[in-house]
Design a binder for these strands. Structure first.
Lengths: 121, 121
DNA sequence: ACTCATAACTGCTTAAAGCATATAAAAGTG
DNA sequence: CACTTTTATATGCTTTAAGCAGTTATGAGT
């Protein structure tokens, strides 16, 4: 019966809250639709669930961070094209600032860790 | 009447999931108790709510990442001293690896953003 | 006719955090 | 001594980002 130790240690190391800023960055390159964003983010090594993506886009629109319009030209199902507003650009800028700070903190973390791992391990 | 624009644009730029790894790092420096960890994290520029901290520590213990023991010596209320287990060290190592990756991604983000911000204004 | 790629969206659940509050021991202060 | 503050741990309720599964629909390929 293989004494499976019940400690549930899940915790696949991962932080949350990255989808939104990455969406903003992707949209900063130019207006596009959800499905394309989905592929872009996967390509950038940030796989994201479609449900999350579409819901996030709609939430962003409610806040005035993006605006959308249907595109019925072309083939296949209609696409909803999203575009960054001025407020969206401002928000992206604050994210960039925050990320600079976070990058610094991660550096400190890693330095401290390496020092400890050397000493201890 | 101050036409308070109803776009709720909250989103104080912040990622989630950092408390746990920073706790692991702090504990890697040596066994200590929650209140001290609280002050350490605030000192490291990572302000954390006491409720979150204590609950996280208990969750970590349930998983076998840390172990605790009451310290009734000394003055003031009793302290629960936490110590990293071997599994805790392993978990910290995987976080460090993840953070290296994340740091790289943040760098890419910032480079891409600066390029766009230059071009666009 | 059938399947597949494209495209958008909903429902239910979990995980980490935010915020407020409770409890209690000891130290400091008028 | 009564009162407040500091140290220390903990719970309850809510929100938010995400995980996971599924639905609807258009058009192209076979």
């Amino acid at each position: 019966m293989s004494h499976k130790h019940h400690h549930g240690h899940r915790h696949p190391p991962r932080v949350r809250g990255l989808v939104l800023p990455w969406l903003l960055l992707a949209l900063a390159r130019g207006p596009t639709h959800g499905y394309q964003l989905l592929e872009q983010l996967v390509g950038a090594g940030l796989p994201v669930d479609p449900g999350i993506l579409y819901r996030t886009l709609r939430a962003l629109e409610e806040e005035g961070t993006v605006v959308s319009a249907w595109d019925t030209e072309g083939t296949g199902p209609a696409r909803r094209i999203y575009r960054l507003t001025d407020h969206g650009w401002e928000l992206l800028a604050t994210w960039a600032q925050y990320f600079e700070d976070l990058r610094g903190k991660l550096g400190e973390f890693l330095n401290a860790y390496r020092e400890l791992a050397d000493k201890t391990g």
